[in-house]
């Protein structure tokens, strides 16, 4: 029974982190129609901002939310500087890939200059350990497993229940019509990026609490988030969330049965096979066209 609960718990934990990252990517894709390759760097930046605020002597309860808010600003700035000027160009998808990659490299090297290459660690959300169903886990991990669904539920109700959230989805569906009914499309683009950056920053804070942080810590989560959004379907918010947990469980099981080295290769094989059969992702509706 311990093996099963090991896999179950590990999958739940990894899935939470992936969901947090992937939702931001999907949000930006559905709203603006570009892929943000500096998303992993946002994650790193959030963790470092939080670390800096804690180092200034702020208590964790203030420092962490403050870092998330600062990240929203960072997301807005990035959008305004490297994405907004390109909107309307025929090859925007490709050009934004290169500008966000370059911006990511700029921020990553900037972080390396400011904070240095030495590994750092954030304080845990909750200190201490416990044992559930024969598996020893830290309370920090439990906190992540509990907080993530709450944050995602809050995001879901924001997108579906508030005027602002509905406006965001309207822009995602039809930009021209949204402009015609008087929505501020530019501001909504900025908002999408700000929310995505905040979520990535929060994921970074989660990660910094149980693993050492360094300026390139965002690269691997970005990759996993990419798999998740492809797997779950890129044109919705709920698809990637389910896919994140599914991939979390898959990874935990594969780590156990096939070993750490084969897991990424298996994951990519599953991804490519999925795309050959269902290019729109397994949780997406068939009706949406590919673009």
């Amino acid at each position: 029974m311990s093996v099963f609960s090991d896999i179950f718990f590990g999958g739940l934990f990894q899935g939470s982190l992936y969901a947090m990252m992937a939702v931001g990517l999907a949000l930006v894709w559905t709203t603006i129609g570009v892929f943000n390759f500096s998303h992993g760097v946002f994650m790193m930046l959030g963790a470092y901002f939080a670390w800096q605020l804690v180092a200034f002597g702020l208590p964790v309860v203030i420092a962490f939310p403050l870092a998330v808010i600062v990240m929203a600003g960072a997301g807005w700035i990035l959008q305004a500087s490297v994405v907004r000027p390109l909107i309307g160009r025929p090859n925007i998808v490709l050009v934004v890939v290169i500008t966000t990659l370059a911006a990511g490299s700029l921020i990553e090297n900037g972080a390396l200059t400011v904070w240095g290459p030495r590994s750092k660690q954030l304080p845990s959300l909750i200190e201490g350990n416990t044992t559930i169903a024969g598996v020893g886990v830290s309370l920090h991990q439990i906190a992540i497993i509990v907080i993530t669904p709450l944050v995602l539920a809050a995001l879901w109700s924001f997108l579906n229940r508030t005027r602002l959230g509905l406006a965001l989805r309207a822009v995602a569906q039809n930009e021209d019509a949204s402009q015609l009914v008087g929505l501020n499309v530019t501001a909504l683009y900025g908002l999408a990026f700000a929310i995505a950056a905040s979520l990535a920053g929060l994921a970074g804070i989660f990660m910094g609490g149980y693993r050492f942080m360094n300026p390139s810590m965002g690269a691997d989560p970005l990759l996993k988030a990419l798999i998740v959004v492809v797997f779950g379907g890129i044109s919705s918010i709920s698809g990637p969330i389910f896919a994140a947990y599914l991939i979390g469980f898959f990874e935990a099981a594969s780590n156990y049965y096939f070993g750490l080295y084969w897991t990424p290769a298996l994951l990519f094989l599953v991804l490519i096979a999925t795309l050959m059969v269902r290019p729109e992702g397994i949780f997406a509706s068939r009706s949406r066209g590919l673009a």
């Binding site: 998808v93 492809v230 094989l269 991804l271 795309l275 290019p279 673009a291």
Partner: peptide, 24 residues
């Protein structure tokens, strides 16, 4: 059968797959 961003993602995945096989 794919277009645009999906081609980016699959080929990106292909590159990672090759790298993972070499590492393993």
């Amino acid at each position: 059968r794919l277009k645009g961003i999906y081609i980016i993602l699959v080929t990106f995945g292909f590159a990672q797959l090759v790298m993972q096989v070499i590492i393993s």
